[in-house]
Design a protein around this nucleic acid. Sequence first.
DNA 1: ACGACAGACTT
DNA 2: AAGTACATGAAG
Length: 463
Amino acid sequence: MLSQPICQQARLSRDRRYDGLFFIAVTSTGIYCRPVCPVQPPKEQNVRYYATAHEAALAGYRPCLRCHPDSAPGSSLWIGADVTLKRAIRLIDEGALHDSNVAALASRLGISERYLRKLFQEKLGIAAKQYALYRQVLFAKQLLHQTALPITDIAFMAGFGSLRRFHDEFKQQLRLTPSQVRGNRTRHMSTILQLELPYRPPLNWPLMLAFYQARTLEGMEWVEGETYGRTIYWPLHQPQYHGWFEITPDPTLPVMQLKLDWPDANSLQAVVHHIRQVLDLDADSQTIDQHLAAAGGFPVHVGLRLPGLWSPFEAAVRAVLGQQVSIAGARTQLNRLVQGIAATTLPDGRRRFVTPSELANSALDMIKVPQARRATLNALGAAVQQQPHDAPTAWLSIKGIGPWTVSYALMRGQGEPDVWLGGDLGIQKALKAVAIDPSAFAPWRSYATFQLWHLPKTDKEPA
DNA sequence: ACGACAGACTT
DNA sequence: AAGTACATGAAG
């Protein structure tokens, strides 16, 4: 937590750099704000500072209606959390506690329920279920602000099992009823949802866009102007639903404009959260860039995030087809793969990525690769089909899948921040040029990897 | 690890 | 007058 004088100075000058790092609760009004809030600054004697929005809410304050202090990215809770806890948080954000309980989540994580409870209480100071409810309420609030959906629908989309329960929890956390939050506002609404995804600057969108553009697959991904779009599926490894999204940076605010076509209300929160994570919007670029710059050796691209793929499976398939060939070569084979399976054409003419079972059962004669590569892909498809919840490291036992491929899947498929692609040709070359021990980049070695890929123009980047 | 109880959740 | 949308008390 920042010290009181720093917070005071930051709020009085409405310093953007401190946005999201702390929150201002005002005892006289019972409301809490962001440091950038446009209102008349309250007297210091009436002010209490909190590190997170949730702590302020717990202390009985309700979020300000002008600066929306709860809409700042939720990454602060993640800082200092260990791997299991992060996985738990991720699963909860994807709705793991909506209709099953903490016990089920614990067994999914391979730990005891007791230990999971302890983990949350000790590291976050809040119970797992409480955290889940907090995210559910915030998601509902976002939909109230940014869509015209009926409040009843929103309740269920946010994962509440009954209207009654939704109203109760909403009021307890925000001290406002859902309709009070919505106000008069009636915005456009169709089957296509438009939402704003806030992030903490800086964000180097041009660089990410270029990375995506060089790798787009026909009908499945597209880049137009500043917009990146792609088709998506859920759940990740046994797709039941298909849709697409487009994402564009807002010209003035630190917000990405999301256009989302998604058919299933129940998984909406999971999908929106997954989009955030694929685009790495929760990364704290300021800290990461500082760290990489301190490690030294090369000029840092400011605000570079990890441009993710939709699933670890998809990342692994791309990695396997990218072994030993250029980006363009890999892209050709991937296009053939997707187009060679007729079922990938969606009703609207777009294309979706192949599923694990399709990959497992196809003869794969549409792609021109060594036979061994086909066998690897078949085996990968079968493995994911049978054990959809296995981590990518489990795929190491498949012939043709080595550490490089798994690392790539972790980095691009699940946004792992600290993966080092030491075996990569481009990386080895770049590293020789800068002469640094890669351990200096920890715990942000994935970002260092992307920085180095973008460094000088190398001809052998992976697909 | 266990049981009682509070309060989370549904109708 | 009937129907829809939202909020909330009561009970299990």
